[in-house]
Every structure is written in C-alpha cells, then in structure tokens.
C-alpha cells in the first residue's frame, strides 16, 4: 500500500472540502473493501478521508412507513436493530449474513452500495424494496443508482448520507453464499408493497437487476407456485469458476421461490 494523507473530518462540509482539495482523494468508511483494494494497489489515493466521525451519517430511525439508515451504519448495527427487525426482518437477516462478525463490525451500508460489488447483498435489498439513496446533493432512486459493474450514479466527491426505505407488507431474501467469501453467488430479494411487487437479483449479472416477469406473476398471486415456469435466460449472466451463467440463471428461479416462501 502506498502512503497517503489521512483526514478525519467531523462534518460533511469538511469532508467534501478535503475531497475537493485533494489531488486524488477517496473516502473510507469501514475499509472492508478499501483497505484490501489499497493493499493490492488497485487504488492509490493521495488522501484518505475517513467518514467515521461524521455523526450525520449514523443511525437508524423509523418515521411512519419509512425506515432510514445512515450510510455509516455497520452491518452489525443493522442486523442488531430492533427497528429494522420489526419493520423489515428480511433486511436484518440479510445484514446478519454478510461476511463474518469482524466484517460486519466494520463494513457499512454506505460503503457497500458505493462500491456496488456485483455479488454484494445490499443492492438487492435496496432495489427490491424501492429505496431512495440520499446524498450530499440529491436523492437517487435505487433503480437509477446501481449503474453497472462497480459503478454507481455517484459523482466525484458526492457522499451518501442515508437511505430511506418504504416498509413493505412482506419481504424475503435468500442467497446462495459463495462458500469462501459468503458473498452472494446469487441472491434474490422479493418485496410486496400494496399491489406492487419487486424482485431483485444480485450476484447473477454485472450489477443487480429486476426480474419483471416474476414481478408481474407475483402481483397476481404472491405465492411460490406463481413463479412456476418463469426463468431468466443465462445469456449475459456471470460465468466464472464458481458457477456457470446457466447455473446462476437456474438459481434465480429457485431462490426467488424460496424468497417468496420465506417472505414475512
């Protein structure tokens, strides 16, 4: 890892200014992606701006039917939150199955979605629940936030402040974990809000995506059997030593049925 200048601002305004003043600045949250990436010299920032001390980025709250989670909230905090468990139990369990306890104690929601790893869990939840990502300059619907492999709608220097999530009637998430890393080989998040249903798959393609054919079928009949015969073509899906594209496609169907059955 190359050396850098380390900053620990206490306000968002300071963080953005430090970023703007740096030659090649980069934010750090839990560091569970950033530190390994810097070790491999895939990133060599001149300045690291730590978001840890910024209190505006922390905390979980519920206001009516909207759950808000600050960007710097760790996976362990989401997993252990009574508010989350009550509003969206599937989300609490998703957080509890990310990596391992040490990763969950450092890794954050904001870091996970900013990184947009194709196999990350949170993108499936945010797209599946129709969440909104609030940044220092705007509000971005989850559908428009995750734009491609490790790519998001975030502009240079823009900081994710929090996400707001509508509380669904029912939601379920099931992943087939990659046995070594626990990342999702494939994961499917299903949520029913009023008459509308959303189905989001992660791990399968270069970036999280919705499965509209499944959404339509579930809007008519929210049951695992309604998904019978609906499949996603393997073409364009990830194909690597861990799983072929066709296997991932078949996992989407299986996991979607299980997610519906598990939804509560």
């Amino acid at each position: 890892m190359y050396d850098f200048t380390y900053h620990r601002p206490e306000t968002l305004a300071d963080a953005e200014k430090m970023f703007a003043d740096a030659d090649d600045g980069q934010y750090i949250a839990g560091g569970q992606t950033m530190v390994p990436v810097m070790k491999q010299r895939l990133a060599m920032p001149s300045d690291i701006i730590d978001l840890e001390r910024i209190s505006d980025l922390k905390g979980i709250s519920r206001d009516g039917n909207v759950l808000s989670i600050g960007a710097m909230t760790t996976h362990a905090e989401v997993a252990g939150s009574g508010d989350v468990a009550k509003a969206i139990p599937a989300l609490a369990r998703l957080a509890d199955d990310i990596g391992d306890p040490a990763v969950r104690n450092r890794g954050t929601l904001g870091g996970s979605i900013a990184n947009n790893d194709p196999a990350a869990d949170y993108p499936a939840a945010l797209v599946g629940l129709g969440a909104t990502i609030h940044t220092t300059s705007r509000e971005i619907p989850a559908d428009d936030f995750f734009t491609g492999l490790f790519e998001t709608a975030l502009e240079e220097g823009e900081v994710i402040v929090k996400v707001s999530i509508p509380v669904p009637d029912k939601a379920g998430y099931v992943k087939f974990p990659q046995p070594a890393s626990r990342f999702a080989l494939v994961g499917v998040f299903v949520a029913q809000i009023g008459d509308s249903v959303r189905v989001a798959a992660t791990g399968a393609g270069p970036c999280v995506f919705r499965v509209e054919a499944m959404e339509k079928a579930l809007e008519k009949d929210f049951s695992a059997s309604a998904l019978k015969g609906i499949s996603v073509p393997g073409e364009g899906l990830n194909n690597d030593i861990h799983a072929s594209a066709d296997y991932r496609a078949s996992l989407i169907s299986t996991l979607a049925r299980r997610a519906v059955a598990a939804a509560e």
């Binding site: 380390y6 560091g31 569970q32 390994p36 306890p101 040490a102 990763v103 104690n105 450092r106």
Partner: peptide
Amino acid sequence: TSQCGACVVHVDGKPVKSCTMLAVQ
C-alpha cells in the same frame, strides 16, 4: 487479505480483523 481471521483483535469490545483496519482509524 481479510480472509482468515488470525489477526482478530477487539476494538471497543468488538472483534475486527486488524489486517483490514488502518492504525489511524
């Protein structure tokens, strides 16, 4: 590389991988 957990220590009572945390943090 953040995989094995041999480096786990407690920071504020919570287990973390010390190879995946900067000392300045």
